[in-house]
């Protein structure tokens, strides 16, 4: 336990001192602010039409200006935007050790390598949880300020849990990003993987096989794609769970056994 506490302390310090913490928070906050902007546009269609393209886009995405639509946008953004933003966080947490050539300082230590990897995953999970809570709370404030209709405590609670579940499922797909950051020794391979998996998720969803493709499951669970949400079942969660454990095991195996030449 001491070893884990030490490793986690080190990871947390690195994250606290880095600008990327603030950048990811600012990046993710665009989501509730953009959602709020769409709500403002949708509340005033006459004005929105005068704005032209922006209004058309807003209507395509949300349709009506109310709390269900606003929460839906936040959930979908957590799944879609999160797939890239969370991948960026994971790529940084793991890939920086290779980019900064500090991985070699983590190899011959009394603290086992798997403990360091576990600490990195826990930090990533907490980071993602923090960002999700942040945009939910800020979203509540923006929604209230914009004064959109359709609020209910029950809706807020359901949306909160949907967002958390979406964020959890998106996080569970991050170990493969960690693996690519480690084996690829940097940032580009994991980000390439994140973009590629998102593209495949789109294709799987369009073909109607999204519930069988782990990387498509968070978007479907986010509830925005109503026609597909019903398809998600136990098999989908088990596949995401499999991808999580497979990714964690592969990342740990790589840190344990691969040649560290940087």
């Amino acid at each position: 336990m001491n070893a884990f506490v030490a490793a986690f302390w080190a990871e947390a310090l690195k994250a606290r001192r880095s600008k990327i913490t603030l950048l990811t928070a600012v990046g993710f906050l665009l989501l509730p602010f953009a959602g709020g902007l769409f709500m403002v546009i949708l509340k005033n269609p006459a004005q929105a039409r005068a704005w032209g393209l922006i209004s058309t886009k807003a209507q395509l995405t949300a349709g009506v200006a109310d709390w269900p639509a606003f929460f839906g946008m936040l959930s979908l953004g957590t799944a879609g935007g999160g797939a890239i933003l969370f991948a960026l966080i994971t790529a940084w947490v793991f890939g920086r050790e290779f980019s900064d050539h500090t991985a070699k300082e983590l190899m011959a230590l009394p603290t086992p390598r798997w403990v360091i990897v576990a600490a990195k995953f826990v930090l990533t999970a907490l980071w993602i949880l923090g960002l999700t809570l942040l945009i939910f709370v800020v979203g509540l404030g923006i929604g209230t300020a914009v004064d959109i209709p359709g609020w209910s405590a029950e809706l807020a609670a359901t949306s909160f849990w949907t967002m958390l579940l979406t964020a959890l499922l998106t996080f569970m797909l991050m170990p493969f990003v960690a693996l690519f950051a480690s084996a690829g020794r940097g940032y580009l391979p994991p980000l390439g993987w994140a973009i590629l998996s998102l593209a495949f998720a789109q294709i799987a969803s369009v073909l109607g096989w999204g519930d069988w493709f782990p990387w498509a499951v968070p978007v479907q669970v986010s509830g925005m794609v109503k026609s597909h949400a019903d398809q998600v079942g136990l098999h989908s969660y088990l596949l995401v769970l499999g991808a999580f454990f497979g990714g964690v095991a592969a990342t740990m195996a790589w840190w344990r056994s691969a040649d560290q030449t940087r």
Binding site: N2, A3, A6, A7, W9, A10, L13, K14, E105, L106, L109, P110, T111, I116
Partner: peptide, 8 residues
Amino acid sequence: EIARRLHD
């Protein structure tokens, strides 16, 4: 300090 903690 990171090294101290990781070296226990």
